[in-house]
Design a protein around this nucleic acid. Structure first.
Lengths: 110, 110
DNA sequence: GCATAATATGCGGATATCCGAATAAATCGT
DNA sequence: ACGATTTATTCGGATATCCGCATATTATGC
């Protein structure tokens, strides 16, 4: 551990990171950023959210350094900071799908 | 999507999965299960938690099918259901470390 | 400087999560 | 069947998250 950091603090930070991913809207945002940067207004339009609510969610993703904001004039473009985030995203989605298939099997069996 | 499931519901489920990971204690539990199954009492002892609290967290992980409970007599052994969960776990941890290194660089620069 | 556009932030009520204490449920030995 | 052991669940108060509304901030064009 490079910086002075207790085990507890590290797990806390890891949990904060996960918490930032633990909301449907924020997952939608991340999915929307896969193909490249998007401005806030683009995201508002594509996701159909109130602007303030979207900005709040973007703020949470920003705080955890999951996304990067680049300003060009009045518009701010958001992009993903680290491809490993989407990798983790996809792994969990695979797990989810396998859980759903499993549940289906059991549903048929019972 | 095999089962009847709207896009919104799917993202909701994904978020629930992430939420289950979004707590330091539950991350500690998952880390503890990497090397194989552990009984509840082993986990209580190794993590130093109240038994009820640990069971609550295990329940959350169980509900999301992140862990499996196997009963042997009076003791219940928990194990990880899918290695992809720990893979996702590790990817996020790498992201976290890189974020911390970055913060350190900036701290030194300023 | 001022009106406008794009984005961010503060506030407050509704809802969800967290933890400890007490209690229930399951299993064992006798 | 009864007591002991291990694990799970319920309840309630404290704390945190979420969203809409209103307002602030930042940048542009005139």
């Amino acid at each position: 551990m490079s910086t002075q950091q207790s085990k507890e603090e590290f797990y806390q930070l890891h949990a904060h990171l996960c918490k930032a991913l633990a909301h449907p809207t924020r997952l939608l945002i991340i999915d929307e950023l896969r193909d490249g940067p998007r401005s806030v207004s683009e995201l508002v339009e594509r996701l159909g959210l109130r602007q303030s609510n979207l900005s709040q969610h973007l703020g949470i993703l920003r705080d955890q350094r999951l996304v990067i904001a680049r300003r060009d004039g009045q518009t701010v473009y958001y992009s993903l900071r680290d491809p490993r985030v989407t990798q983790a995203f996809d792994l969990l989605r695979q797990v989810l799908r396998s859980v759903l298939r499993e549940g289906e099997r059991l549903a048929v069996a019972n």
